[in-house]
Design a protein around this nucleic acid. Structure first.
Lengths: 247, 247
DNA sequence: GAGCTGCAGTGGTCAGACCAATCGGGCTTG
DNA sequence: CAAGCCCGATTGGTCTGACCACTGCAGCTC
């Protein structure tokens, strides 16, 4: 192949960029079922040779897939090395949303509104599906947050973890990842407002109460009550924090 | 800098990979407000020099951001060229979800469940906020789908477009992108089932009716009715399609 | 003044190189 | 013969330096 050439050097198809050729190749295999979770991609050098692109192009494609939480790369020979199609949950959604929120591409009120819908679903499912193994970590988080001396940052982290644990208990993977992503994307904005708060201990007490009642409703399997409580929790908390200055 | 070196060549911080250094730099500017929508990143060569990494590393980072719909790159000099922080909606979420669904990382039933929640919110907001300018395209889509001779693929595309138009009318950007992403991620699976269907014209007629009533409810501002209808629509449609074989 | 032309800057791409991590198999040693 | 060590092959990670095609703008031409 001729050395340089922007976008297309007689690339068989249309104006596909080199890394898009690789992406396409992977997509085709995924759709066709030749590539599934747990499988490995060919080594970068080999893929480059196969598709007649440079290794740099392959790497860019791999980074794209990595950013989407589709693959995981690790060095070394043998079975463990190489680029593998990832199965479990990643924080790809979180990273994406975090940046979007930070750029105000998604306004915070929009995000809050979606969060309400999502967490209503989350607790409703959790109330129906939660096992003791799911409830235990939530209780532990509640205990940590109960400490009067806990600092705002830690509290915020536990708060996030609590909502994620709830989504975990829901047993719906998309709900889980989406909830985690949304709460995570709000982590910094919320923390800023926590710090701007005058009446921190008072607010913390309110949040503690909210969490307790939500947990209780879920634990006793009352999905509707839990949904109402969580909606209230999110909306009222946001109302309180809204006023605080940012950064 | 020494030429090679995996992961760390005395990179100031921890085991940050080269492209992560770039990512970090961008994140810091975003969080700090020095980078906002519409701004340009420094040229790749300059960024590489500034951060003391190779241009390849910068490009990998840019690809990551591009995969997340954060930036857009274009060649050429002057103000238009370069890498720019993107504002509007991208299909980044769609691409991410599509691959996850194709890999069954998110099981279809999980996705459908989330879709119900999201679209309930979508139509409720649309009923409250839709203007005639929003309703017109939906009506047009409905007309296209009304054609008895329309083929399944076109119908499917219009169906997607209808739901997205609805989310557009909701006036919530995150709802819009998520709805589009989810429906889009289901496009192929649904199309496969459409083709496997025995009683296509019958099913199409049902879907037409569903869409009409949802549209009517939204047009008259009855959010609750619309929410109930859309939930019914999604669930019953999925139930019908579920049986059909895949691929 | 209108139109063209060339330069400079930008992303797109490639080739070739070396580094560090890792696994396995073969060799050494007890 | 078994346990352990070591070296080589493989893989991703990174860098350098180069060239291409596209674009806008300044300066030149007519």
């Amino acid at each position: 192949m001729t050395p340089g050439g922007a976008a297309t050097t007689a690339r068989s198809g249309e104006g596909l960029k080199a890394f898009e050729v690789v992406l396409r190749w992977v997509d085709d295999r995924i759709l066709g079922g030749q590539l599934a979770v747990g499988d490995q991609l060919p080594a970068e050098r080999e893929l480059a040779r196969m598709l007649d692109v440079s290794r740099a192009a392959v790497r860019e494609a791999v980074r794209t897939l990595q950013a989407q939480g589709i693959v995981r790369s690790s060095v070394g020979g043998g079975g463990a090395g190489g680029t593998t199609i990832t199965g479990g949950s990643t924080n790809a959604l979180s990273l994406l949303l975090r940046r979007h929120v930070a750029l105000s591409i998604f306004p915070a009120p929009d995000v809050v509104e979606v969060r309400v819908s999502l967490e209503r679903l989350s607790v409703r499912l959790a109330a129906a599906n939660a096992t003791p193994e799911h409830l235990a970590p939530m209780r532990a988080l509640l205990d940590v947050m109960a400490d009067p001396g806990i600092d705002r940052s830690q509290f915020n982290d536990c708060d996030t973890a609590f909502h994620v644990a709830m989504a975990d208990a829901a047993g719906n993977l998309l709900v889980r990842d989406l909830t985690a992503a949304i709460r995570e994307s709000l982590r910094l904005p919320i923390l800023d407002r926590f710090h701007a708060l005058q009446s921190w201990s008072e607010v913390a007490e309110t949040l503690r109460g909210d969490h307790q009642s939500i947990f209780a409703a879920v634990a006793r399997g009352d999905g509707e009550a839990a949904a109402a409580l969580v909606e209230d929790h999110i909306r009222s908390a946001w109302r309180i924090l809204e006023g605080a200055v940012q950064r």
